[in-house]
């Protein structure tokens, strides 16, 4: 395959990572927590879409919408029952709870849907775009377009809308935001809702690309997207986008040109090097210490 095809595949993978990373980074920015269960929300989204689309045989658009609704409700529920009571607790307590939620989702999925891999049919009808001798599959194209649309919409939402403004205020200073009359609790809920809805879309795109789904489907992409978020500077929205895209491209290129087996090692090694040079990620704010 030519370099350009590889680059396009990398962008496609990277844009899915970026969409997932957005969920991580928004939650981190606002609730100051690492939501380890985010990867498993992706998996739930994938299964819901699978059940509607493959088992019930309904159109794929219904599957995607159902996945988004279920994941949004799931995200809000998780936040309400597992994370909200720990708002004042230490960050490790929240981390362990998030891990508990992640185990819970994985095992619940195993009981409900079974542990075997199920074949996922692509949500995009198979077609290919051919420009000269370059051929891009429809799924790749749709993935990139959908992700770019999501990123632009989200950026506008956070920059222009009132809720977006509230989100930025809460991430800057929770107490001051509360004094200004912002409802911090509902702002955090909205953040979880948006992050989870994005995770549902990412889940469907991811399963369409890998053509299979199982209860642990979300783990590795979750870790990779988390890495991407840190790569770009966690808490920063453009950082998550750039981090995700870069990670996808690096992964695809090293798979094609360096070594298939060592891909993960290369991706993570680059991450470590980046963090050594820029300890707060590419777009992370430098934190000045006050005594």
């Amino acid at each position: 395959m030519s370099l350009i095809t590889q680059l396009i595949d990398g962008l496609s993978l990277g844009s899915v990572y970026a969409v997932i990373a957005l969920g991580y980074t928004m939650v981190y920015g606002i609730a100051k927590m690492l939501n380890f269960a985010h990867g498993d929300v992706i998996m739930v989204g994938g299964y819901i879409c699978y059940e509607i689309m493959v088992s019930a045989g309904m159109p794929s658009i219904l599957g995607i919408l159902a996945a988004m609704v279920v994941c949004t409700v799931l995200g809000i529920t998780i936040e309400r029952f597992a994370y909200k009571p720990l708002r004042k607790a230490g960050s490790l307590a929240v981390l362990i709870t998030a891990i508990g939620v992640s185990y819970f989702l994985q095992n619940a999925a195993m009981l409900i849907f079974g542990s075997e891999t199920k074949t996922f049919t692509s949500v995009v009808p198979s077609f290919a775009l051919a420009i000269k001798d370059l051929s891009i599959s429809g799924l790749t194209l749709v993935t990139i377009v959908v992700s770019v649309v999501i990123m632009i919409a989200l950026t506008l939402f956070i920059k222009k809308s009132k809720i977006g403004k509230a989100m930025r205020a809460v991430s800057e200073d929770k107490d001051a935001a509360e004094l200004m009359g912002i409802n911090v609790n509902s702002t955090i809920s909205v953040t979880f809702a948006i992050g989870s809805a994005l995770a549902a879309i990412a889940g469907v795109l991811l399963c369409s690309t890998s053509k299979g789904i199982m209860p642990t489907t979300g783990s590795m992409p979750g870790i990779k997207a988390f890495t991407a978020a840190v790569f770009g500077g966690i808490g920063s929205i453009p950082g998550a986008m750039v981090g995700g895209l870069l990670l996808g491209v690096i992964e695809t290129l090293s798979k094609a040109y360096i070594s298939y087996e060592l891909t993960d090692a290369i991706v993570f090694a680059i991450l470590i090097v980046v963090l050594l040079v820029r300890p707060t990620g590419l777009f992370g704010k430098k934190i000045n210490e006050k005594v």
Binding site: Y28, I223, T227, V230, I234, I272, L275, P279, T280, G281
Partner: peptide
């Protein structure tokens, strides 16, 4: 903090 966590994870 979290950046350290991610480096150890990556390792």
């Amino acid at each position: 903090g979290d950046y350290l966590a991610i480096v150890t994870l990556a390792f």
